[in-house]
Design a protein around this nucleic acid. Structure first.
Ligand code: MN
Ligand code: MN
Ligand code: MN
Ligand code: MN
Lengths: 221, 221
DNA sequence: TTAATTTTTTAGATTTGTCTAAAAATAATT
DNA sequence: AATTATTTTTAGACAAATCTAAAAAATTAA
């Protein structure tokens, strides 16, 4: 049942998918916050997505993407991340500039376009922020990673992804010499505010806040 | 006054621009036919475009794009044609496949994206159908051309563009060895139906209808 | 286990873009 | 010039997506 999804429906589905990554089921308020709309609008849309069998919705209780909905979400995310890869690797965008543009490009739904773009780019596995790109069957290359905040002291690790699209944060990170593939270790942790002193390999040491350390995902070597 | 235009507004403006190429001013019915909507909807949209100063609209009389509207149209057309060029030259689409996809891509309005795409493609002057691509200032490379139907007999000419996006027609033409840059001459014209016998350089002769001959633009050598 | 608080849903309104049917204006014919 | 035909606009309705305010349900606290 390959229904044509409106841009709005696509955005809701994608947001539900992302929110489900962190918690088992999603709340109306969380979705409203994520998508910058009001809870009442979320309820309206949930009823529509329910009739299209894209979510399993129990009013007042909870909702999740259906198998159909999950598949649709992966398609949208595939397009989003392929375009981000294209923008950085072919058009010389920086990693903090691409998210906004990809938010628009992801809604161009031609399958032929997406698959040809994928081939043109050499079937990349990860986008510029380290997030995995689903292949044309919706299969994702999951990688082992943990928040930098949880990395034990004095353990060398490699940055695998950054779980936040704020261009503020992203340009701060690249200005500090932090990007996907950067090797670093945590040297100290301040009890006062939970900030971390980190040593970037072959570079200077800097302090980062707990929030930033939680957005950065690493793979201990 | 760089107002944000909805997809619908963009489609209306683009259509008005194209219709103005052929006749001085545009009629409500012609626009409705072109955009596959009803005359009443056109009137509604004209009133909105008028308040945004994108058209000069005299109810019951006529309407044209304003200077503003013209500029907006050129921007949309620039995006459309750049993407068509990209699809054919980078993603290996054929010239009859690109129009439909470009209809969607043209509505992604990021100026940075468009300018970087332009640079990436090497600032192409013409799209895969031979239509000129406006530069970032809206300037167009006009070429001297005439309908193949008007080409005198036995005059060598080069095909410069095809003024129709029907994929039917476009694949017929490429299957017949006709594309942008093809050299040919008209050998005979049947009075019965105005069809033309044309000789493609280094290839066989074929007959084409008056309609097709009028869609093909050539430059006599 | 009531009462208070928070979350979620409903009711009703609004905006955008579209449509049909009817009215008004313009153009073409006799 | 009057009639007829065509084109265009208006009036009113509708679907999609959103909002505010009020009601209902669920959760938390007392
Ligand atoms: Mn992104
Ligand atoms: Mn990303
Ligand atoms: Mn086209
Ligand atoms: Mn074209």
């Amino acid at each position: 049942m390959l229904t044509n999804l409106s841009v709005s429906e696509q955005n809701y589905i994608k947001s539900i998918y992302h929110l489900q990554q962190n918690s088992e089921s999603v709340t109306t308020n969380a979705l409203a916050g994520h998508i910058k709309t009001k809870p009442a609008s979320v309820t309206d849309m949930l009823k529509k997505l329910q009739t299209k069998n894209l979510v399993n919705y129990n009013p007042y209780k909870s909702f999740r993407l259906s198998r159909e909905g999950n598949k649709a979400a992966l398609n949208i995310i595939r397009r989003h991340r392929l375009w981000e890869f294209f923008l950085v690797n072919q058009l010389q965008f920086t990693w903090e500039e691409v998210h906004e543009v990809a938010e628009q490009l992801e809604h161009v739904t031609s399958k032929k376009l997406v698959d040809k773009l994928d081939a043109f780019l050499g079937y990349p596995g990860f986008d510029p922020h380290g997030d995995p790109i689903p292949n044309s069957n919706g299969k994702i290359n999951q990688q082992v990673q943990m928040p930098l905040f949880n990395l034990p002291l004095n353990t060398l690790a490699i940055i695998t992804s950054v779980q936040n699209q704020s261009s503020d944060l992203l340009s701060f990170l690249s200005n500090s010499g932090i990007t996907i593939g950067t090797k670093l270790e945590v040297k100290q942790k301040l009890n006062f505010d939970n900030s971390l002193g980190i040593k970037i390999k072959n570079k200077s040491s800097i302090f980062i806040s707990e929030q930033i350390a939680n957005a950065i995902q690493v793979n201990p070597l």
